[in-house]
Amino acid sequence: MERQEIEQQAAAFRESFQRVKSEVQKVIVGQEEIIQGVLTCVLAGGHALLEGVPGLGKTLLVRTLAQANDLKFSRIQFTPDLMPADISGTNILVETAGGAKEFRFQPGPVFANIVLADEINRATPKTQSAMLEAMQEHAVTVAGVRHRLEQPFFVLATQNPIEMEGTYPLPEAQLDRFMFKLLVQSPTFEELSAIVDRTTGIGTDPVTPVIDGKTITAMHQLARQVEISSDVREFAIRLVLGTHPDSEAATEPVRKYVRFGSSPRGAQAVVLTSKVRALVQGRVNVAYEDLIAVAKPSLRHRILLNFEGEAEGISTDSLIDSILVRVREETKVKLSV
């Protein structure tokens, strides 16, 4: 592969990203950061958890994204009575053409390219954990038979931070499987005005698929090739280590309010999503600003607050901010003229 070819691929990557984003924005008003975050996550091959109050368009966003990507989409509405088999699928008894009876595997909704796990925290932990294997290994095992999921495979889950009664907060192990946790904010005045106009009129422009699964897989491969210098890599490592209260790199608030810091998956998520962002920004190298941009969505759900932190209502975003300040200072260029 020649240099020019890579440059063309990088340009195509940026173009595809913009096209998908444009398609999504035909339906979704505002939420620029969320759209960008979800797309980044998808192109990095990760899963995203969207948290926000009902009615902010989380589900619509995911569905539109699936439409724009020309991918197989399925939606699972998580409820307390949802069973694991409802997600992964089950063996059912069917009669063959010869009249014989046999068990045949009936794939669940997880067998899709994009799976919307709506209100994931409403299902029981048992059901939630059924997603673990699918998310991590891109496969499910039913009745001792392992079924591989079609590639690409993304889980885009939503959860409601309020109405916590009767919900089952995701365990840390499952949270860690999500590359990004995105916080969906309420629309601004202008955005709301546009939403009203768009949803109360005759109709909106139909969303057309602009990329397919193959393209996404190629983009995923390209993103992994993006170069990262040792300085930038060191920044990412310091950032992740800074979330550990017993680390030397930890800031004072982290020491005080954090029980557990990010796992290595956090560092992987930061670097991988930074690479995607770099390509989207027209670069083939990762910059500090990429790491800073993805730091919060990558790490906020991987930092576990202690009792004091919970009691004082400390947000993990503020802790990440403090870590970023420190790491920036530590990695500042020494030479000054």
């Binding site: 592969m1 020649e2 240099r3 070819e5 890579i6 440059e7 990088a10 090739q225 993006v226 170069e227 990262i228 210098s229 040792s230 300085d231 930038v232 920004q281 670069r283 083939v284 190298n285 990762v286 910059a287 500090y288 600003e289």
Partner: peptide, 25 residues
Amino acid sequence: KERLSTAVELRQQGKISPIAQAQIA
């Protein structure tokens, strides 16, 4: 955006991959 430092490092490491070359260019 760290283009120069990355390029210098890639040159020092002698990387000749297409993406490294694209980065240096």
